[in-house]
Amino acid sequence: MTAESNGPMISITNVWKYFGQFPALQDVSLDIAPGERVVIIGPSGSGKSTLLRSINRLEEIDGGSITVNGQDINDKSNDINMLRRGMGMVFQQFNLFPHKTVLENLTLAPRKLLDLSRTDAENRALLLLKKVGISDKANIYPAMLSGGQQQRVAIARALAMQPAIMLFDEPTSALDPEMVNEVLDVMINLAEDGMTMVCVTHEMGFARTVADRVIFMDHGQIIESGPPDVLFGSPRHPRLRQFLNQIL
């Protein structure tokens, strides 16, 4: 998947999403440029994870449109499975495949979906494991890893498909505090490599360091957005001020 030279990489336009009667997303619009690092913050239930999951259609939206590289992801004529290959996703609960070794977790998708040979897929996987700092754990099962290590494997697994976009859904929220930094460091490295990143997180320090733009959501709406120093330094909206007071 190659980024188009002009125009946004991800374009979210007037998106609505309901869970039963509950409006999880209310008329949300957001454009993300190639190489941009966007961090979405907000209280729980504000719709930030739903918005992220809508981008690769893990959630089906009820109104509006989302395009990735100019392709409407909800258009039935576009193969969502092909589009998803270009978007890596990292989950709060890691979701590694427990019946596969670390190495097999990384090689499964490239081998089956990209038809890479075993050797090619393993070489690619080993490079990625080195990048996330766990090359010595290639042949063990995920259950034997710590949470931080599992999440780093999960990031490497997503990267093995060489996506143009990485989506992070609260990647550090399920981790013990002492393991948060090892995962954030991997994400910071990734950001420095120029990856387009959309990240839902509660780690404000990370948002400050990495984000080009921070989005604050509440009640299914984007309340405020801007560069981190502006958003954290001089928040305009009272709900954002209240939120920042609670967590900082």
Binding site: N56, L58, R84
Partner: peptide, 10 residues
């Protein structure tokens, strides 16, 4: 597990 697999493109 399903979500992780689907997000990879399976």
């Amino acid at each position: 597990q399903t979500e992780a697999a689907r997000s990879l493109g399976f």
